[in-house]
Design a protein around this nucleic acid. Structure first.
Length: 611
DNA sequence: CGGACAAGCTGA
DNA sequence: CAGCTTGTCCGG
């Protein structure tokens, strides 16, 4: 049979005409950014007239991309698609998404922290679809005035675009939050951001009791978008969809939980500074130990000296320089105080490799002469600073002695020692071990700093190795150490409550300890600023960490651009990651923005928490 | 992100 | 040269 080839193979399609135009698309045309952040591009779709659901910038939709369904956000309505593309209809409108104002804020954040827009939009979007918004509540009267002194200080703070209210750790921030809300009642409800989920839940309840319509951000996104309610949430609430903000308050502004640990390493405080500036809404920061960023952003206001003092418990220092470095962790004063306490809490920070060199002659801790970090002995005879890499011979800076003892600590040994000394069982609460319910009601507990979150209440906190904190090889070590003392102070309660904090130390003159003992955080801030001449950490300088499998390719593209930015420097600290420094985040972000991202995994963290 | 397809390595 | 891996490109 001389049959003709009747089957046309599908792999040789007729070449489509370049300007092939289908039927004109029906309905409106929208530009959609797909949810998967790696895609990173927007695509145009048509919206059939019959589609129901809210259609506006920010709406969440489902579309087909390369034949498979994905979620996405409408970034623009009524767009003009590029020539030659045939639009597909969107599959459905899923529901409400972040408003245009928040999308712009996300664009800013994506640039600021060298992240992707989709990552921020995910943070700013509801967890579940919101097809319709509830009715906003009818506005009620402002909450009744707080204590006069608080109301007055808050009023003064709200005169500024950004101001910090320094409130002692054991003081309840509720009064200040209420005062802030009341004073801006006419302009709209508030947004209150706190570090921890439990704090958000507790503050929401307290605000409701005070007559404020408050909703938790994580469970009431729809109510937040509907407006009229004060929103309380953790850092993601910085992107709350409220359209009618009257005031923004951040409680415990210094807390590291306000910064995302991963990449992009965005910080709720910085996001809200930008958002408030755009909206002309005042931002009130509250903290017992304001960060240097807060200090740089505006005035720091405080209550009277006596009011602040009363909100810190007594903090007792034990000067270990007078003791034999081998005396052990439990000074007789600690044992006596712990025996008298109902629930003593012992904090031992790192479970493993904490190591200090102690001068055998004068008991001073060996530190870096340039930056004050505790030095380590990488090779015999030479101290190396893990923070600034400065090297010096093994000589005591205080007494010129050359013999050093190596101090090491471990949690299990401490539990044993404490049990023996106190004659009772001592519970252990490390970060790894279980939930908060594992701890008995009273009695002594030993743990890492996580124990300060889990102990529930305590009438005594003892820091067993606070010098490790004070001298840690990190930027911000001093700030973090003071924050730790504030956390302990909050657990123990106000001065009148009978609790106390004990800090054995070889650094009793350290400004951080002075600040806590005198309940005067100003002292630590002043010291921190004048202390060292290192490349400046935030807020006076900016650092980005470039890591991940695609880091070398990224650095290769970045390097030629460095010539135009004389103040930027690129450092490679050996382990496959790079650090990029610039005088400020503006220069840093602008530089990173010019680099085209190479394919592959890349971790880009601007101003990371820890380096 | 996930599929499509192109360019490289291995084994008879 | 099939058969598989690894890489690059692209989606409306």
């Amino acid at each position: 049979m001389p049959g003709e080839p009747e089957v046309r193979l599908p792999d040789t399609p007729a070449t489509p005409l370049p300007a092939e135009t289908g039927p004109p698309p029906e309905g409106r045309l929208v530009r959609v950014l797909p949810e998967p952040a790696r895609i990173g591009r927007a695509f145009d779709y048509s919206v059939p007239d019959a589609t129901d659901g809210p259609l506006e910038v920010g709406s969440m939709v489902r579309v087909a991309l390369a034949g498979r369904p994905v979620g996405g956000w409408v970034l623009e309505c009524d767009v003009t698609p590029p020539d030659g593309v045939t639009l597909q209809p969107i599959r459905k409108i899923t529901g409400h998404g972040p408003p245009a104002e928040v999308i712009d804020l996300c664009r800013w954040a994506a640039r600021r922290w060298a992240g992707r827009l989709a990552t921020f939009l995910t943070t700013a979007s509801p967890h579940r679809a919101v097809p319709a918004l509830p009715n906003p509540p009818t506005p009620g009267p402002p909450p009744t005035a707080s204590e006069a002194e608080i109301a007055e200080v808050v009023a003064a703070a709200l005169e500024h675009p950004v101001a910090t209210l320094r409130l002692a750790p054991a003081a309840d921030p509720l009064g200040a939050v209420l005062a802030g809300l009341a004073q801006r009642w006419e302009q709209g409800p508030g947004l209150v951001v706190v570090p921890e989920h439990a704090q958000a839940a507790q503050l929401t309840r307290a605000l409701r009791r005070a007559g404020v319509t408050a909703v938790p951000y994580d469970r009431a996104w729809a109510a937040a978008k509907a407006g009229g309610s004060t929103v309380v949430g953790t850092r993601a609430a910085a992107f709350s969809p409220q359209g009618d903000l009257g005031v923004v308050v951040i409680v415990d502004e210094h807390d590291e939980s306000l910064q995302e640990e991963g990449s992009p390493s965005w910080h709720a405080r910085e996001v809200l500074v930008e958002r408030c500036a755009r909206l002309g809404v005042p931002l009130l920061l509250i903290s017992p130990v304001p960060s240097q960023e807060a200090v740089a952003l505006g005035p720091v206001l405080s209550l009277s000296r006596s009011a602040e003092r009363s909100g810190w418990p007594p903090i007792d220092l034990i000067d270990l320089r007078a003791e034999d470095p081998r005396v052990g962790l439990f000074h007789p004063r600690i044992v006596a105080a712990a025996r008298a306490a109902h629930r003593p809490v012992f904090v031992l920070n790192r479970t493993g490799r904490s190591r200090l060199s102690i001068c055998r002659n004068c008991s001073a801790t060996a530190t870096c002469e340039r930056c004050d970090a505790a030095v380590s002995r990488l090779e015999t005879g030479i101290f190396t600073c893990p923070r600034c890499a400065h090297e010096r011979p093994e000589v005591c800076l205080a007494c010129r002695g050359t013999a050093f003892a190596n101090l090491r600590l471990g949690v299990s040994r401490v539990v044993e020692e404490a049990s023996a000394l106190l004659g009772v069982d001592v519970a252990e609460a490390t970060g790894a071990s279980g939930g908060r319910d594992g701890l008995p009601e009273g009695g002594p507990v030993v743990g890492t700093e996580a124990v300060l979150h889990r102990a529930g209440s305590a009438d005594l906190v003892v820091f067993l190795d606070f010098d490790q904190e004070l001298l840690a090889p990190r930027y911000r070590a001093a700030e973090q150490a003071l924050a730790l003392l504030a956390r302990a102070a909050r657990l123990v309660g106000p001065r009148a409550g009978g609790g106390r904090v004990i800090v054995p130390t070889r650094e009793p003159e350290h400004p951080v300890l002075h600040a806590a003992v005198l309940a005067d955080p100003d002292r630590a801030v002043a010291a921190e600023r004048s202390r060292r001449q290192l490349p400046a950490p935030p807020p006076s300088g900016a650092v980005a960490e470039i890591a991940g499998q695609a880091a070398p390719a990224y650095v290769e593209r970045l390097t030629p651009l460095l010539d135009d930015v004389p103040d930027a420097q690129l450092l490679n600290p050996e382990d496959g990651r790079w650090l990029l420094r610039a005088p400020g985040w503006q220069q840093l972000s602008a530089l990173l923005d010019q680099v085209e991202r190479p394919p592959g995994r890349l971790r880009l963290r601007v101003d990371p928490l820890r380096l």
